[in-house]
Structure formats: structure tokens, C-alpha cells
Computed example of a mutant assay.
Amino acid sequence: MKILCVNWQAADDAELERQHYPDVEFILARSTADVAAVLDPEVAKTVDAVINHSPTLNVPLPPTAFPNAKIAVRSGVGFDNIDTAGWGARNIPACNVPDYGTTEVADHAIALMLALTRGTYSYPAEIAVDGLEGWHFSKAPLIRRHKNATFGVIGLGRIGLAAARRAAAFDMRVVFYDPHLLSGVDLSTGYERVHSLNELMARADVVSVHAPLSTETRGLLGTEAFAAAKPGLIVVNTARGPIIDVTALEAAMRQGTVVGAGLDVLPNEPGDLDHPLIKAWRANEPWIKDRLIVTPHAAFYSPASMVDLRLKSIEVIHAYLTEGRLTNCVNREYLKR
């Protein structure tokens, strides 16, 4: 069994994978240049599976480059950067790994909220810069009580549900918007379902994004959504950057409708440091001071989650190639069987 690992992210040479799957031969390509150097057409013919390890980069070769491949995997939850239709046109399943890092991402979303609303981001910075002049409870602009505040979730999947549970533990009311979720889930969780994004925006004090990136969700939080928002809104995004129109977010923050944002993801990654919103934040302009937090697409990360991700990626392939057991398929609509 031969697996090509494209955009290989780990510092090691797949020792973990080789230890758990000694029957697999791994070909590692750390970059597009590595693919060209490592993968000639003769090697491509022998590949049984392809994995894309990058959360932002597409696999740099088309599915047709692998005539004998039987499965493709995106090593992560989001699968917007794997050619699901292209693999499906060849009747080859494309899969993801949705069951890793759930707790990490949910924790990160809540941590971003708390950093803004409890001042754990603002207070240390004020003291570090201004000394005793910064030693005062009023230095954090977004402090608020969580009990009875409304936590709005966009996308109540594994991670959205985990974030909702954490928010509920702070005695927050939870409402969610997920047009693709089957009816009845709100009854079993006790969370309230709303049937339009605008209603969620109008009711929520905090909105946390946990939806996949698709044509439907790209730019979902834009000018119209922010116009419908309850004044004083805080927005958190640990899902995919393009779901939020950051230009519209900047306008809403300048207007004061959105008073704070925690962004683990941006439309272009690594982050576009020249975007006006990011430039203003980096310059610590008064209107945005202590109101924006940016982290480097790190919500998924912990040493334990990386072990899970690496092994589960191979498990999906191994189960399919040895047992015919298909899990986590994201392109079933394109498959003939």
C-alpha cells in the first residue's frame, strides 16, 4: 500500500504513521516543489491514496495524475481545498477527518470570547505597556456578564455543539442557525433553533462560526448580516476565514455595531497584513484597540490532537483499502455506487 502525503506538515518523516501502519509505504512531499521532485509519472501510477495535509493549500496535482489511486483524504475537518468533484468524476471517494480536535477548537472559540469579555487579553497588555497607569479594571473595553447573555452558533456540528455546551456552562442562552441540520436536534439539546441568519444576528450577544466553507457560506457574514446584528455584538471565527467578509466586518466595527472580534482564521493565510482591518489592529489604532484578537489558524492544535489527526487520516485510508469500509466520505453525490 502506497500513500502520497502532499503538503506534509510535520517536522518528522512519518515515524508515527510507520509505527502504527508498517504495511504502508509513505511518500512525503512538503511543498509543491517536493511533489515535482519526488513524484514522477511512474511513481504516480503506483500511488494507492493521496492525502492533503495543508488547511489552506490545494493538492497541487489533479486527480487524473494518479491513475491507480482509490481514495483521497483531506487531513482535517474542512475539505474546501480538495477536489471533491474531480475525484468523484473518477468514482473515487474523497474523505475528511471530522473527529479530531473538536475539544481544542471549541475551547479556542470560548477562549477568544473570554479574552475579549473578561479582559484577559487587554489587562496584561495595558500593564506591560503603561505599568501602574494601566493597573485598573476599566482598561478592558468589552467586559460583560455572561449569565443570561445569548451565544449564537452558526453550524451545530461536532465543534459547534461542543462550543454551545461550553457556553451553556457559563449560563449563557444558546441559539443556533444550521439550515442543513435535521429537525429535532434543538429539542434534544435544549438549545433554541432559529431559521434565518438575520434572526440569529439580531438576538446574539456573541456569534461563533462553526460552519464549513462552501459556495453557500462564503461571505455569509457580510454587510447584510452585520446590518441585522444586535448592537454590541462580538464575533468569533474558528472555522474558515472566507466565511466572514473582513471588509464588512471592519465597517461594522468602525460603526460600533460589532464591538469585538476573535479571528483564528482569515480569508487569506498566512494573514493578509495589508488589509485595512489587520493594519489598524497591528497599529493599535484607538478605534480597534483591545477589540480584535487574531490567532494563526491554531484553534485545532494541541500535541494530542495532532496525533489523532495523523493516525485517523491513515485509518480512513487503511480501512477502505483493506476492508472496503468507507468512512467520512464528503463527495458521495459524485459517486456512482
Rank of each mutant, 00 (worst) to 15 (best):
K2S: 10
L4K: 00
V6D: 02
A11H: 12
L16N: 00
R18S: 11
R18D: 02
Q19K: 15
R30N: 11
S31V: 02
A33F: 04
P41S: 12
K45S: 10
H53V: 00
S54G: 07
T56M: 12
P60I: 02
K70T: 11
A72C: 06
F79C: 02
G86T: 06
G86Q: 04
A89Q: 09
N96F: 06
N96S: 03
P98T: 06
G101H: 03
T103D: 13
H108F: 07
L116T: 03
A125D: 11
L132F: 14
R144S: 14
R144M: 15
G157P: 05
R158N: 11
A164P: 06
Y177D: 09
D178M: 01
S183G: 14
V185G: 10
V185D: 04
L187R: 15
T189S: 06
Y191Q: 07
H195D: 15
S196K: 12
M201T: 09
R203V: 05
V236I: 12
V258T: 01
V258E: 02
L266P: 01
N268G: 10
E269L: 06
L277S: 04
I288T: 08
K289Q: 14
A299W: 06
F300A: 13
P303S: 00
M306Y: 09
K312R: 12
V316T: 07
V316W: 07
H318I: 05
A319G: 14
A319H: 07
Y334K: 13
